[in-house]
Amino acid sequence: MTPPDAMSPGAAASTVRTLHPGTADPVATGLLASLAAAAPGASTVAVAVHRAGERLVAVGGRTAHNATGRPAEPGTRFALGSVTKTYTALLLAELAARGEVGYDDPIDRFLPPGAAPYRRVGGAPITLLHLATHTSGLPRLPPGLLRSALPRWFSNPYAAYGPGELLAALARTRPSAAPGTRVRYSNFGVGLLGMLLARAAGEPYGGYEQALTARVLTPLGLRGTGARAGAAGDATGYWHGRARPPWRIPGLAGAGALHAGPEELLRYLEALLDPVRAAGGAGPLATALAEVARPRLVVRPGEDRIALVWNARRRPGHLLLFHSGGTRGCTAFVGFSPQRRVALAAVANRAPALDGAFIQRAYLLLRELAGGTTRFGAPSPIG
């Protein structure tokens, strides 16, 4: 059921930032209308685009359907869900660029005694790279998590699942395939990666946000991005027309705990388009920003690849890198093309639909912008 005050496909942007602020922008209105049509029930939808030096951030609607809702802004935060995984990949690349970890380091190096998963005699260990490319053989979720989540299934299913529970589950896990032999999407794997990277960065196992903030978010100026749920002004999430509390994910923070606004999402993507400028010069962070976009393995010959967490798809003359995310109340999509200097982020405060309409619409918009088939603004550079 769609609430009566849901954002309509033709809703005007409440906040538009373009090259020409203060003027009506048909491109912004058109992008918002297209995405809002694919997110019925959302009270706010936002899109942020960069193309060849031009940028646009447009936000429509209000942060909630009820009287507490306020006009959404470029800084209004949405739950990112699995888009968080791309930040975890960047943390991995930053630590690797400094020589503090190696991509081929076995996870046993960062685990307490007795916490390593089952390994066949003579078999290869799971490495950090396996976790970042979904080739670890670990299941989608840790064993036992769903059972512990059931009492809070409609509120905060992961809130009581911390690093201790994750380590205990890992010790009794038997991978379904030898590491490096099969791609199998795993929240367990990337959540574990975030926890191990926190430890490698000198934080406790539960210190993912602290490590990410120090190594990635603060250096890139992303001060509004973080794992704290329910901050004032955040978009309220909706599932089947009902408001849902933001998820707290202490044990799998690296797989889905972050929140960010569309303007900071765009700045994050722009850092991936121009690593040296974003990092303030050549150095470990600039190296890391470039490394995450490098494809590591082929999923389907001639088409799909996996970089560090990012999905990569070959298009005529360029590469598209993208990832999506969803929680019980928000849907997010991010993508970019380094060769075409294009990036797009799209968010809505409603849970993902079974048909994936919002994510598919956002991907098609990114593809069209990168392919030059969608007009975007006037051809003048940002000063």
Rank of each mutant, 00 (worst) to 15 (best):
T2C: 02
A36F: 09
R120H: 10
F376M: 11
Y87T: 09
P204K: 02
L128N: 01
G326E: 08
A307G: 09
A12Q: 12
G372F: 05
L197D: 14
T218S: 14
G22M: 13
G189R: 00
R228N: 01
R140E: 14
T225G: 01
E270H: 04
G122E: 10
L80G: 02
S155N: 03
Y205I: 07
A64D: 14
A201V: 06
L193A: 09
R341W: 02
P316D: 09
W239P: 00
L365G: 02
H259R: 15
A257N: 06
G22F: 08
L272D: 07
P204L: 01
E165C: 00
R147H: 06
N349I: 07
D274E: 13
V47K: 05
V49Y: 06
A232M: 04
H323D: 11
A28N: 09
R51E: 14
L364K: 03
R17H: 11
F154A: 13
A211T: 07
S324M: 10
W153P: 00
V16W: 01
L269E: 15
P151E: 12
A97T: 11
L35P: 00
R361M: 06
R277P: 03
L217P: 02
A286E: 02
Q339K: 03
V276T: 15
T18I: 04
G162M: 03
D274C: 01
V16Q: 01
R77K: 04
R172T: 14
R51K: 12
E94Y: 00
G30V: 07
